[in-house]
């Protein structure tokens, strides 16, 4: 790796033109995109929430659909950002050479990577907000404090967008992403408190879960949705922001190495 790839960059506001480009494409494909990002998690949330929930007396002191709504909100925001950064990002970077075209204009690779992370956050926010709206319509929201979920959704989207971009700029092909899903995303969903409380798990796994970003997203989202202020807000935000910063910096350095030769 060249020393220059590690130096701080100077991004420009032109990066919003790249976000806007992605938004224009999304607008053309919005219907199938929304269907995939919204219908799928909703079916799970409603099916498991009311179906499985009917068998459960209460989970962590609340009804299962309440419990699951917060998990689904974080989970589908994470998925929205991850799929966008990985598959769509890889198409733009490697298959369509859209990034190459943009770099011939007065934009840098740093602009593009930051724009892609922001765009992943925006697109994931569509999913997260849609779930929030459905939760509100179903009367699952406990109070005005739930409005804090809006910035939280954006942060979760940005964090997973940035982490996903690290894989995108490392990937030789689409198959590479299976490692990320199988080794990171899927286990994290199962131990992160999305479907059942962390307390169910052995102590060692709980400790591992505390090191993962999704756990902290859920730990904030669940009380907020229920109408109360979460504990340890600083810690949870710190972990999410830490992953976001680490992901973005790693993606920047690796993208420079890959594309600036």
């Amino acid at each position: 790796m060249s020393r220059h790839h590690l130096l701080p960059g100077r991004p420009s506001l032109r990066l919003f033109a790249v976000c806007y480009r992605n938004l224009l494409v999304w607008r053309k494909l919005a219907v199938p995109s929304l269907l995939g990002n919204l219908a799928d998690p909703l079916i799970y949330m409603l099916g498991l929430g009311y179906g499985l929930g009917a068998l459960l007396p209460s989970v962590a002191g609340t009804s299962y659909i309440h419990f699951l709504a917060a998990g689904t909100l974080c989970y589908s925001t994470m998925n929205g950002a991850t799929f966008e950064a990985l598959y769509s990002g890889f198409s733009r970077m490697h298959v369509q050479k859209t990034w190459d075209a943009i770099m011939n204009a007065p934009l840098s690779i740093d602009d593009i990577v930051i724009a892609e992370a922001l765009w992943a956050a925006i697109k994931a926010s569509f999913s997260g907000l849609a779930i929030l709206l459905v939760a509100w319509a179903l009367g699952l929201i406990g109070g005005a404090v739930a409005l804090w979920l809006v910035p939280l959704i954006a942060l979760v989207g940005f964090t997973f967008g940035a982490l996903g971009l690290v894989m995108t700029v490392l990937a030789p092909n689409y198959d590479f992403f299976m490692y990320y899903f199988t080794l990171f995303i899927t286990p994290m969903v199962l131990i992160g408190g999305v479907f059942f409380p962390l307390a169910q798990l052995p102590a060692g796994i709980q400790l591992l879960a505390q090191c993962l970003p999704l756990t902290h997203a859920v730990a904030l989202a669940r009380p907020l949705l229920g109408g109360s202020v979460p504990d340890d807000v600083g810690l949870h935000l710190g972990v999410l922001a830490g992953y976001a910063v680490f992901g973005l910096l790693a993606a920047l350095v690796l993208a420079r190495r890959r594309l600036l030769g």
Binding site: R21, V25, Q96, K97, D100, A101
Partner: peptide
């Protein structure tokens, strides 16, 4: 710049 490999935006 006209690059060697076509990179027009296929979505537009």
């Amino acid at each position: 710049v006209v690059p060697q490999i076509d990179n027009l935006d296929p979505d537009f």
